[in-house]
Simulated assay, not measured.
Amino acid sequence: MAAGIRDVAAAASVSVGTVSNVLNAPHKVAPATVERVHAAIDKLGFVRNDAARQLKANRSRCVALIVLDIGNPFFTDVARGAERRAAQLDLTVLFGTSDDDAARERSYIDAFDEQRVFGLLVSPVSDDLSRMLTLQSRGTPVVLVDRDATGTPFSSVAVDDVAGGRLAADHLCSTGRRRLAFVGGPRTLRQVSDRLQGAQAAVAEHPGVTLEVVDTAELSVLAGRTVGEQLRARRPEDRPDAVFCANDLLAIGVLQALTLMGDVQVPRDIALIGYDDIDFARSAVVPLTSIRQPSTQIGTAAIDLLAAAAEHDEPQHIVYQPELVVRASTA
């Protein structure tokens, strides 16, 4: 039979309450006693019953993180930052990817709700936050990630994507480009619509500059490659002379398609800029200019906001400013 907490208490000559404190609040126990209890745990092979502890506390030590696409290195870095900070707080992060699918997002939220997670970090698929509101009303704190939630009951950590879109378009205009194209979608994603809004605002301030909008079904390399092939098939005078992609994965796909046959050169014929500044951006065949987001820092901040929300603090909102990183694709 597996050893229980009473067996540990007897072996260490302490009370059951002392063992509980060693496991959950060691700062309340004398160091020598902590050492003695841990020695008894090791000797007996005691494993804490987290399921029972969860039932008693009505909350686990697991944090749920739902992102739009865990295959996107930006969200991988966000998850890495969250995981590192969570470990410092004795929390474990569980991951889910919605694939930009609202039904899949709801399914994950329901599953994590059943597990009574400590809290939920989510990059929402749409503006419908009703399921998150229900979760939070029942005592599970929710933090929106990569989405500014100012004006809602949720804490949030995000980047000013409107400013990022403006940075990208302003940069392209400053290099003398006049026929710009924005590539991205679906526009139901707030990040995409905000980046487009910023680009449109910048273009409106530059007389003679136009902005074509090319919608995509997803933010992937394959979607970018399809757009790049379509642009390459146009007559040179009908092509944009600069392309702003809503993320780096799209931009890498566009770059691959444009340079495949060698008849279109980046940046001579078409300047190209992405968004996120993932590691692949700097190592592309033509190093990619991008708008940098502090991805790991976003994940770290999300965990801190969740811990504060669990203490019933007022909603807090962190909005980082993006940074232009210029490389050869627009030089």
Rank of each mutant, 00 (worst) to 15 (best):
R166C: 06
R85A: 11
R239S: 01
D263G: 08
A271Q: 07
A103E: 14
R36E: 01
D194S: 12
A103W: 00
V285H: 12
V159F: 09
R104W: 03
A181Q: 02
G228P: 02
D113C: 07
G176F: 09
N72Y: 09
G208R: 09
A310Y: 05
M1R: 01
V63G: 04
Q88L: 14
M132P: 00
Y320V: 03
S130Q: 11
Q316G: 14
V319W: 10
D194V: 05
G228S: 05
D100T: 10
D113P: 00
A223W: 04
V159Q: 11
I41E: 00
A12S: 15
K28R: 15
A201F: 07
P236M: 09
Q256P: 01
D99R: 13
C245Q: 02
L305D: 08
R187N: 02
D276F: 06
R239W: 02
I70V: 15
E35W: 01
F182Y: 15
I109C: 05
T300Y: 00
N247W: 08
S329F: 05
D42N: 07
A281L: 04
R327T: 05
A32S: 15
R232W: 00
R178P: 01
H171M: 09
T216Q: 07
T152G: 08
R178Y: 00
R104T: 14
D215T: 13
R187P: 03
D148G: 10
R187A: 13
V16P: 00
A199T: 08
H27D: 14
A149L: 04
A40S: 05
E311M: 10
V266F: 09
D113I: 04
V14R: 04
A12N: 05
V145F: 09
E114G: 15
G176E: 00
A223F: 08
D101H: 11
F112G: 04
V209K: 08
T300C: 08
G208A: 09
A257E: 07
G81W: 12
A246E: 07
D148E: 12
D69L: 13
S107N: 13
R131Q: 12
I270S: 11
I318F: 04
R84V: 12
E237T: 15
A217R: 13
C245L: 03
P322W: 14
A301L: 02
P153S: 03
Q321M: 10
T216A: 03
P322F: 12
S15C: 05
V286A: 10
T18M: 03
A281K: 11
E314V: 13
R147F: 02
D7R: 00
A168W: 04
N72S: 12
E229D: 12
I70A: 13
V67D: 06
Q197H: 11
P287V: 05
F75T: 03
T188W: 00
A86N: 11
S130K: 11
G151R: 10
E105W: 08
I66E: 00
D194E: 15
A3R: 00
A64S: 15
I41T: 01
R195I: 02
A149Y: 07
A284H: 13
L180K: 09
P294T: 06
R268S: 14
E114Q: 15
A328L: 11
D99S: 15
A57F: 11
S193Y: 04
K28D: 02
L211R: 06
R104K: 15
N49E: 02
I109E: 05
E311Y: 06
D161I: 06
T330H: 05
L189D: 04
A308C: 03
L288N: 12
F154N: 07
V8N: 02
A302G: 10
V157F: 13
D7H: 03
T18S: 03
S98H: 11
L94A: 13
